[in-house]
């Protein structure tokens, strides 16, 4: 690694950012060069750079909020996302841009025309194609340092436990209540935090559930629950998933970097039609 360390130093430069703070940065082109020279993948080069306080330029605007330790933590983390639709698309895009090292994505669906109004990854050309394939392709185009593992399938609790093994945080971007409860049970079994969100019309809700919290099971009961909520009537317009998924991205980043105060035992409930954001205390 000494060789890589010296090459990182040689190919980086000091830049002044913010209020006269000097930061040593390495360009995208030079990260690619070093990956090619050493045979390491881009993520490994980026990790080694950040360890030595050399920042890949692509993360320059994140440094002020996540810091060096935070960026390293993100690059070393694995996040599991169930659902690559309205919420999940925006979530994985945000996490990939922040440099979360590994994403495990599960979704059994293909894109449909009715997804075009809101799903970030969905283009006309994608209709009929698996959502997870498009997600992996997008990440490869935007941040190839991020490793993406995809599963094109529907999973139950046991399946989630198996596929998400090794994750640090799970994200609930599903679209049905019973599956969400299964995911919370899976997160409990894995001992992992779960960042929940759901949307309907102009309404979005977000909360972070730790394994010992009641979370969705407390809110909806653990028994029989309806498949769908009020979204069956109101539908899902474009802005609500963006707004709601953004909060999820931020909760994941906070969990991974250990910064800020989580939306734990507090459910953020926004109603964009009336411009209100409430915090509901939950068990």
């Amino acid at each position: 690694m000494t060789d890589l360390s010296s090459r990182l130093l040689a190919l980086s430069e000091v830049k002044t950012v913010g209020r006269d703070e000097a930061v040593r940065v390495i360009s995208l082109a030079n990260v690619v060069t070093l990956a090619s020279e050493t045979g390491l993948n881009r993520r490994e080069v980026e990790r080694e750079a950040v360890r030595g306080h050399i920042l890949p330029s692509r993360y320059l605007r994140s440094l002020g909020t996540v810091g060096w330790e935070g960026q390293l933590a993100l690059l070393q983390s694995t996040v599991g996302v169930v659902g690559v639709g309205g919420l999940g698309g925006w979530v994985l895009m945000g996490l990939a841009r922040m440099g979360v090292g590994r994403l495990i994505l599960i979704d059994g669906d293909v894109f449909e025309e009715s997804n075009l109004n809101r799903q970030a990854l969905c283009r006309e050309v994608d209709i009929g194609r698996p959502k997870v394939d498009r997600a992996a392709g997008w990440v490869q185009e935007v941040n190839p340092a991020v490793e993406v593992v995809t599963y094109r399938c529907q999973v139950d609790e046991a399946g989630m436990v198996e596929l998400f093994h090794g994750s640090h945080v799970l994200v609930d971007a599903l679209d049905a209540l019973p599956a969400r409860l299964e995911l919370q049970r899976a997160a409990r079994r894995l001992g992992l935090p779960l960042v929940h969100a759901a949307i309907a019309g102009y309404v979005g809700q977000v909360m972070t559930i730790l394994p010992e919290d009641e979370g969705l099971l407390g809110l909806y009961g653990g028994g029989q629950v309806p498949e769908h909520g009020i979204e069956a009537v109101w539908g899902n317009p474009a802005a609500t998933p963006m707004m709601t998924a953004s909060w999820q991205v931020q909760e994941v980043v906070k969990l991974l970097t250990g910064r800020g105060e989580l939306l734990r035992h507090r459910m953020l409930f926004m109603d964009a039609e009336w411009g209100t954001v409430d915090i509901l205390q939950v068990p």
Binding site: L87, G88, D175, L177, A200, P226, E227, H228, G229, E231
Partner: peptide, 10 residues
Amino acid sequence: VCLFPPVAGG
């Protein structure tokens, strides 16, 4: 008393 609809869409 707070009353809110169940929301499950994604």
